[in-house]
């Protein structure tokens, strides 16, 4: 059901771990829904010089975290902010429809981590598209949201 790319990032996750003195940390998801993502950023001169993640979740959640961290490494904060869930899913050569929310989670995790940094530095947080949402696409009988 998963692409080779997803399996590669699941089996060999990039940037897994914790940055203890991170400049920005973002956490999204909740255990009831079965996925939590935590993103740690090191930022120097407006550039993401290091990024790590911790994820509790399915294969797609782990692969999305791994890919998203790869996509923002070395980018300016403005560029990192623009990395969309679609970009994450495309870089993974697609996700099953029911797993698209995992890529949304990755995008939101990055946004939260960047805003955490901005707030800590006395800057206005940028507007998050769906703050605190946990958007499972395509399910009418939505019961798992936070």
């Amino acid at each position: 059901m998963y692409s080779e790319k997803v399996m590669d990032h699941f089996m060999n996750p990039r940037n897994q771990g914790e940055i203890t003195d991170a400049d920005g940390v973002g956490e999204v998801g909740n255990p009831t829904c079965g996925d939590i993502m935590r993103i740690f950023l090191t930022i120097r001169d407006n550039i993401v010089t290091d990024v790590k993640f911790q994820t509790f979740g399915c294969g797609a959640a782990v692969a999305s975290s791994s890919m998203a961290t790869e996509l923002i490494k070395g980018k300016t904060l403005e560029e990192a902010w623009e990395v969309s869930n679609k970009a994450v899913a495309e870089a993974l050569e697609g996700l099953p429809p029911i797993k698209m929310h995992c890529s949304v989670l990755a995008e939101e995790g990055i946004h939260k981590a960047i805003n955490d940094y901005r707030i800590k530095h006395g800057l206005e947080p940028w507007e998050e598209k769906n703050p605190h949402s946990h958007d499972h696409h395509g399910h009418e009988d939505e019961t798992c949201s936070s």
């Binding site: 996750p13 897994q16 914790e18 956490e27 255990p31 939590i36 993502m37 935590r38 911790q54 994820t55 509790f56 782990v62």
Partner: peptide, 8 residues
């Protein structure tokens, strides 16, 4: 577990 924020 090494990957999990809950375990951390």
């Amino acid at each position: 577990r090494e990957m999990s924020p809950l375990y951390a």
